[in-house]
Simulated scan of single mutants.
Amino acid sequence: MTHASRKLPATFAALLLAATLPACSMLPKQAPAATYQLPLQQPAQTRSGVHGPRADGPILVIHSPASNRVLDSDRVIIAQPDGRLAAWQGLRWADTAPVLLRDRLAEAFIQDGRLTVHVDSAAPAAELDLLGALRAFQVEQRGTAPVVAIRLDAQLAERDRAGAGVSRRFEVVHAAASKRETDVIAAFGAASDALAAQVVDWVLEQPTASATGSDARARHADLPSPAAAESSHSTR
């Protein structure tokens, strides 16, 4: 084999590589995903002017609801009629669905003004915890137009009474104006506002939420400490 013939494989490989480079550069680049915040449909002044803030109102801690792995992401989820879940290509939320809904609930309570609100905080002085499980935060096809469905199993728990509390399921379905992504995102905002308003009304209907913070703290102070209870028991 001559020196020239030994160079042929290397030369051929170089030519092949050079020929493929332009083809690679012509492949379409994936467009960056559009990132959306959850639209706020209801102006802040709509509810905030109805009730004056109560500085002595109970302190409520709003926790991010639990969810499955699909919902606990920044993808816009589409629920297919056959039960399959898919992600809307090219669309993302600014945060995960549980965090988006938690923040919308907090915003609704702040606008209402009757409770002091903390988010995902230990807040040792708090009297109430709003917990929940997010069951749906998705686009569904019902009839000819897409709708947004949000389902939340909410629980209002009292910190000074172990095991005490109430629970309720909330479900809102809001039709999108069209299949365009902007209309679907707007429907998510409207559905979230409607659900948050229902949760606020439900919480404030509870006796524990209507009591003043000083009343709640007084009830808590009246409860005997474990040490005092044990001492009282031993003297009998």
Rank of each mutant, 00 (worst) to 15 (best):
Q30E: 15
A221C: 06
I185R: 00
L115C: 08
R104N: 13
A190N: 05
L27R: 14
R161S: 03
I185N: 00
V203A: 03
R168C: 07
L204E: 05
L152R: 01
E158R: 13
P28V: 00
A108S: 13
L27T: 05
G90L: 06
P53R: 14
P98H: 02
P224L: 12
A18E: 10
L101E: 02
D201F: 09
R236C: 08
A108N: 04
G213E: 04
E127K: 03
Q141D: 06
Q206G: 08
L115D: 01
S192K: 00
R168M: 08
P146Q: 10
I185M: 04
E181Y: 11
V203C: 06
K7T: 15
S67M: 05
K7F: 11
A19N: 12
T46K: 10
L204Y: 04
V147P: 01
L130N: 04
A66V: 07
A194S: 10
I59V: 13
L17D: 05
V139L: 13
D120V: 11
V203T: 05
A10P: 03
V172E: 02
T46H: 06
P81S: 12
R47N: 09
Q89M: 06
L223M: 06
G113N: 03
V70L: 15
V99H: 03
S214N: 08
A133S: 10
R151G: 05
R84A: 13
L115I: 14
G213V: 08
L131H: 12
R84T: 08
F170H: 07
L27G: 11
V76K: 00
L105D: 01
Q37E: 08
S231G: 06
A86N: 05
A229L: 13
E230P: 00
L85I: 04
V99Y: 03
A125C: 10
R142A: 15
A227H: 12
A31M: 09
V147N: 04
V76M: 15
L223P: 04
D56S: 12
D82S: 11
D215M: 14
V76E: 02
V50C: 07
P22M: 10
V76P: 00
